[in-house]
């Protein structure tokens, strides 16, 4: 099949992850992979982002498929169950809001900027080398550290399940994938199931 420009978006994902090691403020760009899928699903009622443009899915597909870094086993049944997928979605967004909350306190001047990247919501890695000060408020940087933590954490989870199961097994429980599917379901039900 002939490759289209959007089949190379995995490069964007890779560049994004690398940039976070040099200047944390690039993390803000990651908001695009939050809003684009949502906008596409709300506007068109499809998972067009997953189906076509998602660089992260492509990256896992490439590493696990072409480069063979995957056992290519079936995911366990619990992982594709609704309670796990929705449960993980809720957990993910709870953690996300906690991150926003911490950012808010830095914006409010009530806490200091913490130059750490938190992996798997637990491990705090010093990351001060990627921050060189900014003319903007410290809260701007705090959000960048928090958001990059979310992106790196989900990448690591995705890489782990890529190794253990099918290359793109992250897509089974990816919060954005689950959210956009729910939006599509709601939209479709709202239209009275007409095709």
């Amino acid at each position: 099949m002939k490759k289209k420009w959007y089949d190379y978006l995995w490069i964007v994902t890779l560049v994004y992850l690398v940039l976070g090691f040099f200047n944390i403020l690039f993390a803000w760009l990651g908001l695009l992979c939050f809003f684009i899928p949502l906008i596409i699903s709300v506007a068109t009622g499809t998972k067009g982002y997953c189906n076509r443009y998602c660089g992260r899915g492509q990256l896992f597909g490439l590493l696990g498929g072409r480069f063979g870094l995957s056992r290519k086993r079936d995911v366990p049944n619990w992982m594709k169950s609704k309670w796990f997928r929705y449960g993980f979605l809720i957990f993910f967004f709870a953690m996300f809001f906690q991150m926003l909350w911490n950012t808010y306190w830095v914006f409010a001047g009530a806490s200091d900027l913490k130059q750490v990247v938190t992996l798997l919501w637990t491990f705090k890695l010093p990351w001060q080398w990627a921050y060189h000060g900014t003319v903007l408020h410290a809260g701007v940087a705090q959000f960048a550290f928090g958001f990059y933590s979310v992106m790196l954490t989900s990448t690591i989870l995705g890489l782990i399940t890529m190794l253990l199961f099918k290359p793109r097994s992250w897509c089974v429980y990816c919060p954005m994938g689950t959210t956009t599917q729910l939006i599509c379901k709601a939209k479709h039900a709202g239209r009275g199931n007409r095709t």
Partner: peptide, 11 residues
């Protein structure tokens, strides 16, 4: 019922 609509199959 268990499909996550990722589209890998279609691709």
């Amino acid at each position: 019922d268990q499909c996550v609509a990722c589209g890998c199959c279609a691709k």
